[in-house]
Each structure stands twice: as C-alpha cells, then as structure tokens.
C-alpha cells in the first residue's frame, strides 16, 4: 500500500491532481481510494487531496502517514500540521512555502513551471513528481490517455513531463 497527498490552495487544481492520480493508478490495476478536503469556494482556502493505492481492496482510506506529500501552499501546512509531520517524504515548493518544515525538501516546482509557461498546470508537475518519488513506472502512457480525454492536452502534457525532469538532491529513491 502506498499513499500520495497534495496540499495547496483553492484554484491550484489539487482535487484534480488527486483525481487523475487515482485514475491513473486505477488504470494500472490498483485498488485506489481518493479523498479530499476543501472549502466551498473555488479559489482560496487550503485544499488537501490524497490517494491511497494497494494491490488488494483498501480497508481504510483514512491514512495518517503519507508516503509522499507535495505542498504547494503555506496555509495548508499549518492546518494539516499533524499529517505533514508524519509524512515519510515531504516536498514543498520553494517559492510558495516560506516557512521551514522539518524534514521537508524544497523544490522550485512553481519557478520551473513559470519558466516553462505551464504555471496553470502546476498540479500536473506535482503529479509526475509524486510518481517519480514513489518509483511508479510505466504510468506515462496511462496518463497520456487520461490527459487526452481532457481539455488543454498540450499544456497539461508539457507540465506533466516537466515533473519527470525535476531532480531532487536527496536520496528519496528515485526511479
């Protein structure tokens, strides 16, 4: 069993990141559970989306320890402090998260996305990075199929592939 959590702000597409992660893993044959915590408004407020996947049916989707957590926003880190602290691998965006999070590695996700002109699809950069960090292979074809069924394929695909190129200078066990 493994789990991936995305933490961000309303409007960043955090729920979508969790949705497409779940779908990709589902297509790969996993049992998955996807949950999210968000407010009523589309923009603003913290959003937590996460996916649990396993080879057998998922007994309990309410996990406390995430294998990887990617945080793209400051506020959520405070709100979900208890979960963040327990996470095995914490990646925070260098620019969007100002505070120090113990054990977290800072990655310039948003800066790279901005440079490459795919800032709107920052969530998909995070998705690919999560797969990379967890060492999930052979998932790009599935993702390609899923992204093709949705709007803004070119942008999304480009953003997604950037996630693959991001190098993390710490032994997280990359693919």
């Amino acid at each position: 069993m493994f789990s991936i959590a995305y933490l961000g702000r309303g409007g960043q597409g955090i729920v979508f990141a969790a949705t497409i992660t779940a779908e990709a893993l589902y297509e790969k044959g996993y049992y998955v559970a996807q949950l999210q915590n968000y407010g009523a408004s589309v923009r603003g407020g913290s959003v937590l989306g996460y996916v649990v996947a396993d080879n057998k049916p998922i007994k309990n989707p309410f996990v406390e320890v995430f294998d990887v957590m990617i945080a793209l926003h400051e506020e959520g880190l405070k709100r979900w402090k208890c979960l963040v602290e327990k996470s095995k691998k914490i990646i925070v965006d260098e620019k969007l998260v100002k505070s120090e999070v113990s054990g977290a590695i800072k990655v310039p996700l948003s800066s790279i996305a901005e440079e490459e002109g795919v800032y709107q699809a920052l969530n998909l950069v995070a998705v690919r990075l999560a797969f990379k960090v967890l060492g999930i292979t052979g998932i790009d074809e599935v993702m390609d199929k899923l992204l093709k069924n949705r709007k803004n394929y070119d942008l999304n695909k480009k953003a997604y592939m950037i996630g693959k190129e991001i190098v993390i200078f710490r032994d997280f066990g990359t693919e």
Binding site: T19, A22, Y26, Y31, V32, A33, Q34, L35, Q36, P57, I58, P61, F62
Partner: peptide, 9 residues
C-alpha cells in the same frame, strides 16, 4: 461526505 466524495473502486 467521506463516502459521498471519496472515490474508490
């Protein structure tokens, strides 16, 4: 809400 919005197989 967990059941309603939670997506599972």
């Amino acid at each position: 809400e967990f059941i309603g919005h939670g997506r599972e197989v």
